[in-house]
Amino acid sequence: MFNTTEHPHTRLNILTGEFILVSPHRMKRPWQGKVETASNTSLPAYDPTCYLCPGNKRSEGAINPVYTNPFVFTNDFSALLSDTPTGGTNEQDLLVSKSEAGVCRVICFSPNHSLTLPLMDVADIEKVIQLWKEEFTALASHTNIRYIQIFENKGDIMGCSNPHPHGQIWASTSVPVELQKETTQQQQYFEKHGRSLLSDYLKLELQKQERIVVENEHFVALVPYWAVWPYETMIISKRHVQQVTQFTAEEDRALADVLKRLTTRYDNLFSTSFPYSAGMHQMPVNESPIPGWHWHMHFYPPLLRSATVKKFMVGYEMLATPQRDITAEMAANKLSSLSEVHYKHSSAAQQ
């Protein structure tokens, strides 16, 4: 009899309409792959060479204020520029380009260079969320902006150029491809059923209790059924809202709570500062309302078997379709079993 815990199968990503290949039997094979060097370097609370620390000079010469709360500024090396002229090219529908304008902002989560989200207090994470909301509102006031991506790259293996706790906010004049897919899937489901796709999905997940990692009154963090990365998770708001600005003060506190609890479990998984790329997905701005949109936040971490073994997208995954060995259920069971006391704060670590 077919069994998803033993046999190869595909799973549908309901947010994109695409399938992934799951091969749980491959977990039995011996590992002889690449091993990275584990990094558990202790960082100082202030680094005079860090261009994000309070009072320090940034690479382009600007001086940071001596900030005590989350601090935001326009990226000195922005991927998008607000003054990009409108234009494009098209040669026989084969060589096609189109100008793209926008704004890239950097948000320092804390003045303390040594912290990360799991090591911050919930009240301080809540301040970050409030600044996310302020920035979203300010950027959305520009009528040419169509999408605002709030995200964080954590760890040098995820391309993070500075260990100071920070994230980014990119606002663009077009809607990126992944968001176009999610818009289509969510709106089609809403038009057919009259309910949010993620509301119904979350209801089913809460009934089954197979992939839940963290839950509170307003949010759930789970390993999605279609997860590609080994310990991929997604945070979904229990209330059907389209954008982060719609959260109440109580929901802000609840989101801060889930962010701390989830990222603490990540760090505890391999007793390391767990790398990931994480970001919110929410309804585009300055367009007609899309009632099917439901706010959620993705976490894509690369670690596979330990702090020194990384998952690569290669071969079949680059040429055909994403593939994973660890099932979503195995990953959720592992994450949910971990302590919510950070390993650096455990009694053994204090000795």
Rank of each mutant, 00 (worst) to 15 (best):
L197Q: 04
P30R: 14
L259V: 06
A140P: 09
Y276M: 02
L259D: 04
P8S: 10
R105H: 04
C104A: 11
R58P: 04
L335R: 07
G279M: 07
D47Q: 08
I169S: 03
E135R: 15
F19C: 06
T49S: 15
I145S: 01
Y67C: 01
L319S: 14
L198R: 03
P224A: 08
P24V: 11
I169P: 03
I14S: 06
A349Y: 14
S172A: 15
A138E: 10
L52C: 00
Y147R: 02
F270M: 07
A79T: 07
P291A: 09
E18A: 14
W31E: 08
V309T: 15
P275T: 04
P289E: 11
F19T: 12
P275E: 07
L119S: 11
L303W: 04
I169D: 01
E215F: 10
Q180V: 13
F299W: 06
F219W: 03
R195Q: 14
P118F: 07
R253W: 03
Q180F: 01
A140V: 08
A348R: 13
L303V: 07
P322E: 12
V228S: 11
E18H: 15
G155C: 13
P54S: 02
S23F: 08
V72Y: 00
A171Y: 03
Y231Q: 10
G315M: 05
L255I: 09
R265C: 00
V175H: 01
T37F: 05
E329T: 15
V213Y: 07
A320P: 03
H164R: 08
I148D: 00
R11Y: 01
Q92R: 14
L338W: 05
P289D: 11
H9N: 10
V244F: 00
Q242K: 02
M234L: 07
